[in-house]
Design a protein around this nucleic acid. Structure first.
Length: 718
RNA sequence: GUCGGAGUGGCGGAAUUGGCAGACGCGCUAGAUUAAGGAUCUAGUGCCCGAAAGGGUGUGGGGGUUCAAAUCCCCCCUCCGACACCA
């Protein structure tokens, strides 16, 4: 059992890539749609990437619009049964539209093939002179409908998405546009989705391209009801404009026209304003073994009852064989827990004495636990309650009145509309019940990029083991065979996985951490290069040798003060690393630490103790093991974790003398060394006095001199 | 198709606000050290011309704004990701 979002575009399961069959079943649902508006509104209050917020907004898919009823014609001459005639005459079709202002342009009514009214409405015979395009070549509307449904059902979702030519069949009857009473034909068309809105749409070709395409296909008239701009040369026009051909709406702008028509429809009870969502309720049952069992039992009448709190939790039974039996399209789905025959029946006193009940055999999806684990982490040993309220407030509440939640949540974008939406919903429910102090689970979210790896295919397109491929002269070979390279997610199918264990044993965990953080920006995908890991390993070795004599293992740190240059460099490094770390730019932080250590290597000799101390504390968040060892060697008796991060002294950041480039016409021609606090006038004079600059400007007409204190001088000649 | 992100040396990438493009690392070249190899250390390394000094050119392509553009504006191209007939 899968939710829609667990099915891939190819119509297979997201996990395991198994074929998926559609089957109607009775299932537990979570009413996440009741929270749709709050899930949408609170996105404005969290510090997340705009792209993820957008994905959630699109997934929730809030649309304002109107339901409108279209009365159907029961053809007096129809030879339908008394029963179906009775139904038909009473049936109105309700549509959902975001553009009720375009109703005067309606030229057809379209129903999804699965729409429940279709069978009631379909006529028994084609009227005389029916357009042959409308019949699908069938002798009667009913036959046309059956054939069309069979054809739609045979198509996979992928085909339905790529096959965009509009198709459909006429049901052999008309309905009436409520504003005009005009008859328009009722079609079944598979581009209308049963899952969205009411499963029926009014076809307005003038303002909707899909309807335009359909109308062209079926020879239906097209009339604009919104005036496009004069230079518009497209087909359907859905932009802003004044209403035309629309009776009392004529001359109104879009919003005013929508208001006016909604008032009109509501006064006559044939329509009403509404809001719909793309978001569906959350299907919460799974026919799997590994999942939390539902604390629900059924009595003999099939009434579901909650297991009393004192009996919680309901735990999974031990099952020897819980693997799903092979299922195909024709087999009856069976939950694995159905095999735990003893467990499946439970005895409880639910108010009228001890009685036997049947347990719910479905389990919860994997998302059930990931919706609240971060709360449980706050107070994991607490057996009485989810989380102690005081503990929860300490960790999760925002003293500045924000939404609170986890301070920084790092994860992949693949959870943008699954875990991250479910957890927000769950948290809001807990918030409403008073169990948590804020409305959002994750105040700040950061999405790290995927690390990709090179994958290689031979001439047949078969993937070969990436670690066995060698590069010669810009080409890649597996044995003697040339192979082609591309980059993809690490994994078995591309045969390009690099396991952390191998890197640990070759270089250690600190090196792996350093390399991963140094590869590039955290939020971007980057290619893994095993041969580059050595660079991070060298850095750590060089740091070690800056502080420790490799031969003796003795500390080589000296109790001397660093000279002014080194002191300034230390503070500039602290400043830069602090900035980079708070922005999660770890690659830059590591680069700056490397520069400081390179300077120590260049100088040779013993490292001043204060510099060694700073170096180790800067490194501690990145390489905890190495830093802890060095910290202890420096004579500290407590862990470096409790040592404060170094603070830069602002007075030490500015150099006394600086080198300033001098440009002539925007090109750097020389550099001058000046006091840091030099005035612009003196800076300009110093630039002009420079030998090379004097040479280049001699006899030329200086039109302008731009001096940027501390940055540069640009002399513009005419 | 729509939305989002990104294009900088041989490679990964740096460049808070327009102000020295290429920090840092990999790789490569040369030297020191070494019995040798590895490791280590030092120097060099965008491209073109030049012995050098120096000059030209250069951040996907084209145009623009500016004394000055990887950075701002307009048009185009390519790659990656998400969604996919949502009425």
């Amino acid at each position: 059992m899968l939710a829609n979002e667990e099915v891939t575009n190819e119509g297979r399961s997201d996990r395991g890539n198994h074929p998926v069959f559609r089957r109607p079943m009775k299932q537990w649902m979570m009413r996440i749609t009741a929270y749709a508006d709050r899930l949408l509104a609170d996105l404005d209050r969290v510090d997340w990437f705009e792209s993820v917020k957008l994905m959630q907004r699109n997934w929730i898919g809030r649309s304002e619009g109107a339901y409108i009823s279209f009365a159907t014609d029961a053809e007096p001459g129809s030879s339908g049964s008394a029963m179906s005639n009775a139904n038909r005459s009473g049936s109105a079709i309700e549509v959902f539209t975001t553009r009720p202002d375009t109703i005067y342009g309606t030229t057809a009514m379209l129903l999804a093939p699965e729409h429940p009214l279709v069978d009631e409405l379909v006529a028994d015979e084609w009227p005389a002179d029916t357009d042959p395009r409308w019949t699908g070549g069938a002798a009667t509307p009913r036959e046309a409908l059956h054939a069309y449904r069979a054809q739609a059902a045979a198509m996979t979702d992928l085909q339905r998405q790529t096959e965009r030519d509009k198709t459909g069949v006429w049901l052999g009857l008309n309905c009436r546009v409520p504003t005009t009473g005009e008859p328009v034909p009722v079609f079944v068309a598979d581009y209308v989705l049963i899952d969205y809105g009411t499963g029926a749409v009014m076809s307005v070709p003038g303002e909707d391209q899909r309807d335009w395409d359909f109308s062209v296909q079926f020879g239906l008239p097209i009339m604009r009801t919104v005036q496009p701009p004069p230079d518009f040369d497209g087909e359907a026009y859905d932009g802003p404009g004044l209403a035309i051909n629309s009776d009392f709406l004529n001359g109104l702008g879009k919003d005013d026209a929508i208001d006016a028509i909604c008032d009109w429809l509501e006064e006559r009870s044939c329509g009403r304003r509404t809001v719909t969502y793309k978001l569906r309720d959350w299907l919460f049952s799974r026919q799997r073994y590994w999942g939390e069992p539902f604390p629900i039992v059924f009595d003999e009448t099939g009434l579901p009852l909650a297991v009393p709190e004192a009996e919680l939790p309901v735990e999974l039974p031990e099952l020897i064989d819980w693997a799903p039996r092979a299922l195909d399209e024709s087999s009856e789905p069976e939950p694995p827990l159905g095999r735990a025959t003893e467990w499946a029946t439970a005895t409880y006193d639910l108010g009228d004495g001890e009685r036997a009940y049947r347990r719910e055999l479905s389990t919860m999806p994997q998302w059930a636990g990931s919706c609240w684990y971060y709360l449980r982490y706050l107070d994991p040993a607490n057996d009485d309650t989810l989380v102690d309220p005081e503990v929860e407030r300490y960790w999760m509440a925002d003293p500045d009145g924000g939404v609170g939640g986890v301070d920084l949540y790092v994860g992949g974008v693949e959870h943008a509309v699954l875990h991250l939406l479910y957890a927000r919903f769950w948290h809001k429910v807990l918030y409403d019940l008073g169990h948590v102090s804020g409305p959002e689970p994750f105040g700040r979210l950061y999405n790290q990029g995927y690390i990709q790896a090179a994958a290689y295919q031979d001439s047949r397109g078969v993937y070969v083991e990436a670690s066995e491929v060698t590069e010669r002269g810009g080409k890649f070979f597996w044995g003697d065979a040339e192979v082609t390279r591309h980059f993809g997610k690490m994994g078995k199918s591309l045969r390009n996985a690099v396991t952390p264990d191998d890197i640990y044993s070759a270089y250690g965990a600190d090196t792996l951490r350093t390399y991963e953080m140094f590869m590039g920006p955290l939020d971007q995908g980057r290619p893994w290069e095993t041969h580059s890991v050595i660079g991070s390993h060298r850095l750590l070795q060089r740091v070690w040798r800056s502080l420790i004599d490799e031969q003796t293992g003795e500390l080589t740190v000296a109790d001397v003060e660093p000279d002014a240059d080194l002191e300034r460099m230390v503070h500039r490094t602290i400043d830069a690393v602090t900035d980079a770390m708070s922005d999660l730019r770890f690659n830059s932080a590591i680069a700056r630490i490397t520069e400081l250590n390179n300077e120590l290597t260049r100088r040779g000799g013993a490292t001043p103790r204060s510099v060694a101390d700073v170096l180790v504390r800067l490194l501690a968040p990145l390489v905890p093991h190495l830093a802890e060892e060095l910290w202890s060697k420096l004579g500290n008796t407590t862990t470096v974790v409790y040592a404060p991060f170094p603070l830069a002294d602002p007075a030490m950041l500015a150099a006394e003398v600086i080198e300033v480039p001098v440009q002539v016409n925007g090109k750097v021609r020389s550099r001058i060394t000046v006091d840091a606090g030099i005035s612009p006038a003196d800076l300009e004079a110093a630039a002009k006095a420079d030998d090379r600059i004097a040479q280049l400007t001699a006899g030329a007409d200086i039109r302008r001199v731009v001096t940027v204190p501390g940055k540069l001088v640009n002399i513009v000649l005419s």
